[in-house]
């Protein structure tokens, strides 16, 4: 290539500290690319939703919409999973646990349902919250840890008035309702705490316990799953195992509420999340 003498070349007239700017044209390929983008843009606005109007935008001749694309994706995945979903619907929960393919599918689907619907209270890791929501990872179950029992709890909820099959039970507020006085409550609390190690036999607390509490929590304090009466002999205290907490529980009573999910989730979803919760490590 011949050397060009650029000194005579026209400039834009701009000059900064002796540095002048050449008035050189755009490269031809660049200009053509620029025109190509304009042509493309016009075609694009015809093909796709683009121009805003008063009440909406032009829809584009391809009829594309992002919502429609998502709906198509969802429909495709649902069609893909339809076979497994119908199997989940038709299969007993205990059988699902023994069928690796269904178990894997139910665990994956259940985990998604859990994150969307359950984690708000029970936590993303299912560890619950002390004093409010039970930990689903341990082996202590207020209403039973068999997969069918978990399914019943999820489907119909706990103390959820709108569901006729909901699990119901109510601990009396012994202090507020005047069934026991403060001294008696203290004595019962001492006895209840002693159940975990060595029960304080022959105390006032034991007598009061047998009279007032044993109907639900049983004579030995092991609780009763049918009534949602917790086991008082183990190391797990949803509302706290120190004396002040136990006194408060006896005085005011405790009654957690969980919504029924049968109306909000499909049967397959309820089954999947039951399998998932069962498999978290505490299932019986």
């Amino acid at each position: 290539m011949a050397k060009r003498d650029d000194d005579d070349y026209p400039t834009t007239g701009h000059e900064w500290d002796g540095i002048r700017e050449y008035d050189k044209p755009m490269p031809r390929w660049w200009v053509w690319c620029f025109y190509a983008t304009i042509v493309f843009a016009i075609g694009y606005t015809i093909a796709y939703p683009a121009w805003p109007g008063i009440t909406g935008a032009t829809q584009g001749v391809l009829g594309y919409s992002t919502r429609g694309a998502v709906a198509e994706d969802i429909a495709r995945y649902e069609a893909q999973n339809a076979g497994l979903i119908s199997q989940i619907n038709e299969t007993e929960l205990s059988t699902i646990l023994e069928t690796p393919e269904l178990l894997q599918f139910a665990n994956a689907g259940g985990a998604a349902v859990f994150r969307n619907n359950c984690s708000q209270c029970h936590g993303a890791g299912a560890a619950g919250a002390m004093g409010y929501y039970p930990n689903l990872l341990d082996d202590d179950w207020l209403w039973g840890g068999e997969v069918e029992q978990i399914h019943q709890t999820i489907a119909h909820g706990i103390r959820w008035d709108e569901d006729w099959d909901t699990r119901l039970s109510m601990m009396p507020a012994f202090g507020v309702d005047g069934i026991l006085n403060d001294a008696e409550i203290e004595a019962v609390a001492d006895y209840v705490i002693s159940l975990s190690s060595s029960p304080a036999a022959g105390t006032l607390g034991e007598t009061l316990y047998l009279d007032n509490c044993a109907a639900c929590h049983m004579d030995n304090g092991m609780g009763e799953v049918e009534l949602g009466a917790p086991n008082l002999t183990d190391a797990i205290w949803l509302y706290g195992g120190d004396k002040a907490s136990v006194v408060e529980t006896i005085t005011y009573s405790r009654a957690g509420v969980m919504p029924a999910w049968a109306d909000r989730l499909s049967e397959a979803e309820v089954k999947q999340v039951a399998v998932y919760v069962h498999s978290l490590g505490g299932g019986q």
Binding site: G125, A127, L137, D138, D234, A235, I236
Partner: peptide
Amino acid sequence: NPTFITLSDG
């Protein structure tokens, strides 16, 4: 999440 849990026998 959580780092540990306690089982019923402690």
